[in-house]
Amino acid sequence: MKLGIAMFPADFAVRPDELARAVEDRGFESLFLPEHTHMPATERTRAEVGELPAHFSHTHDLFVALTYAAAATRSLRVGTGICLVPQRDPIVTAKAVASLDALSGGRVLFGVGAGWISEEIAHHGTDPGRRWSVMAERVKAMRRIWEDDVAEFHGEHVRFGPLWSWPKPHRPSGPPVLVGGSGPLVASRVLDFGDEWMPRDVRPDAPMTCR
């Protein structure tokens, strides 16, 4: 059995490079970092999700933090746990993931999710009600960029003509895509655009906010 650690990379917590060295030294396989770009400071979000801990609005940029973690270690796998794909440009994110994977020697685990805080998602120009279909297309588009020398994608939410984008990931097909979620459709999403399932850390009888 391989074990990993997950931790919010808040600016008031341990540095990601220091944490990564400690995790690797203790024999763990991986370190996963989540992300939130920001927290909406509104009554609407407070009513939706309640009072969240401070680390939700204090996280370092996900890929900057993971780069520090990878550079400070030799074999530790570094993962997005999760990357909020509906809140990110797919071409820019494809390059960030590929760069980190290439520079780390193929140590990236790309966990993806659709998010669960409506206003946070909407601030990035994505309709929260369509976040799952947006995520699916963006992941498929990123895979196309990783795999093809001349990539293009024409979907409902993602459209771009022929483009060149390097570096390519360490592996030709890109890093493993771990699909986050625990709703009834998660298995079909893993089969559609993922490689593995990343379950949520909740009790089986807990209320679901991600479907």
Rank of each mutant, 00 (worst) to 15 (best):
P34A: 12
E120T: 09
A206F: 12
F12Y: 04
W116C: 12
R77S: 01
G161C: 05
R138C: 04
P53T: 14
H38Q: 09
L191W: 08
S173Q: 06
P184Q: 15
G180F: 02
P53W: 14
T93A: 05
G183F: 02
T126P: 03
M1E: 14
P175V: 10
C83G: 03
E147T: 06
A187Y: 06
F56H: 12
R159L: 07
M39S: 13
A98Y: 04
D205M: 13
A94T: 10
M142H: 01
L185E: 11
D192V: 04
R88E: 02
V186H: 00
L178C: 05
E48L: 14
F8C: 05
H170L: 02
R203Y: 10
H36K: 13
S118L: 11
G50W: 08
A47H: 04
R203W: 06
L163R: 10
S165T: 03
F8M: 04
A41C: 15
G129W: 13
P176K: 09
S188D: 07
A187E: 07
D192Y: 01
D17T: 09
H60V: 09
P175T: 11
M142D: 00
W197E: 00
H170Y: 15
A71R: 12
V139L: 01
S188M: 00
D61G: 01
A114P: 00
H123Y: 08
R88N: 01
C83R: 02
A65P: 02
R44V: 14
M7A: 10
T209L: 15
P16W: 01
F28N: 13
E43T: 15
G105F: 11
H36T: 09
V108H: 01
Y68M: 04
G180P: 02
P175E: 13
W132G: 12
L19Y: 11
T73V: 05
V49A: 14
R203A: 15
G125F: 04
E196D: 07
G181P: 06
G4A: 11
P128K: 15
M208F: 13
P9Q: 01
D101M: 05
G155I: 01
A20F: 03
S30T: 03
S165Q: 10
S165Y: 11
A41Y: 11
A122S: 12
F8N: 10
Y68C: 03
R77W: 06
G79N: 09
V23E: 04
G106A: 07
